[in-house]
Structure formats: C-alpha cells, structure tokens
Computed example of a mutant assay.
Amino acid sequence: MSIFIAVQRDDFCVASEYDELRCHAACGAVVIFSGLVRELSNNSLHSMTLEHYPGMTEQALSAIAEQAQQRWQLGAVRIIHRVGTLKPNAQIVMVGIASAHRAAAFAACEYIMDYLKNRAPFWKKEHTAEGDYWVEAKASDKQALARWE
C-alpha cells in the first residue's frame, strides 16, 4: 500500500490528487473528502489559523493511515492537511483513498477523518468580528470516533 502524508501551508489540487490515486491498477474505487473553512452562522469569521506540532503531526497521520489499512484492503491513502491562516471557503484537509471496492474506500475515508479530527495534533484559532478564540473539541467528533472503537 502507498501512503502519502503532507502538512503544508500551500493549497492543493483535488484533481491532481485524484490522478495520483487512480493510477493504482488494482483499485476499482477512489473516494476523496475535502474539508473547507466554513463560515460561522453569524458571518463573523475573518479567518482561521491552524497550528500543528511538526514531526509529531505527520507521525500521527501516518499511524492513522496504517490503522485504516489494517481494517480494509487499501491500495493508496493520501492525506493533506494545511496549516497557517486560511480564509472562509479555503481548503483545509483532503483525505483520498484508493481501494479495490467502494465500501472499503468510503469506510476508510470516514475512519481517517474521524481519527484525524480527534487524535492528530492540530489546533484551530478562529478570528472573528467579536475576537479571537481557540476552537474546542466537539462532542459530536468524539461520538463519531467512538463508533470505530
């Protein structure tokens, strides 16, 4: 299996990432999730700053990808996560899975995102018209993780 992990400031091209995933001959399915900076309900978000722990973050993402491979037969996993200051609607994260079958690709993609949201060392600070604040972990993210354990 091929695993690609990148933590970067630069944006990424989903089409290029798709091309990297579909080149695995034994794969009959490619699933890609791309997460965006979403506007708050009151339209007050100016930007979001994402910080990480270099080295440890990449190691954590690799471990999550390897755990997914142990659960499902995957041909390739690509995880890209951006850091730095991002504006609303900017791409934050992409998880791409290539697998022989769609069920494994969908499940592995969701599994990786659930673990990434809960276990990868990233911190988010939202910059709003009302001020700046660190984003707390959500109960719904922890509930999503619990179904895999």
Score class of each variant (00 low, 15 high):
residue 119 R to H: 15
residue 73 Q to F: 08
residue 92 I to P: 06
residue 64 I to R: 05
residue 111 Y to C: 12
residue 85 T to L: 10
residue 97 I to V: 11
residue 51 E to H: 12
residue 109 C to Q: 01
residue 107 A to M: 09
residue 86 L to N: 02
residue 11 D to F: 10
residue 135 V to M: 02
residue 131 G to T: 04
residue 77 V to P: 04
residue 96 G to W: 01
residue 115 Y to W: 13
residue 123 W to L: 09
residue 22 R to K: 14
residue 83 V to S: 08
residue 34 S to V: 14
residue 14 V to T: 15
residue 125 K to F: 00
residue 26 A to I: 04
residue 146 A to H: 02
residue 58 E to D: 06
residue 122 F to T: 03
residue 52 H to E: 09
residue 135 V to A: 02
residue 116 L to W: 07
residue 21 L to Y: 04
residue 125 K to E: 07
residue 115 Y to K: 15
residue 42 N to T: 10
residue 38 R to H: 07
residue 99 S to I: 11
residue 137 A to R: 15
residue 146 A to T: 09
residue 61 L to Q: 00
residue 28 G to N: 01
residue 144 A to H: 05
residue 22 R to P: 09
residue 109 C to F: 03
residue 38 R to A: 05
residue 92 I to H: 05
residue 121 P to D: 04
residue 22 R to A: 09
residue 103 A to Q: 14
residue 61 L to T: 03
residue 137 A to L: 10
residue 50 L to T: 09
residue 14 V to A: 15
residue 63 A to D: 10
residue 41 S to E: 14
residue 136 E to L: 03
residue 39 E to W: 05
residue 149 E to Q: 15
residue 21 L to R: 08
residue 8 Q to T: 09
residue 143 Q to E: 12
residue 30 V to E: 06
residue 107 A to T: 09
residue 100 A to I: 08
residue 82 R to D: 04
residue 43 N to D: 07
residue 61 L to P: 01
residue 82 R to L: 04
residue 93 V to A: 05
residue 147 R to F: 03
residue 87 K to N: 10
residue 146 A to W: 00
residue 20 E to I: 12
residue 82 R to W: 02
residue 126 E to F: 02
residue 86 L to P: 04
residue 58 E to Y: 03
residue 35 G to A: 08
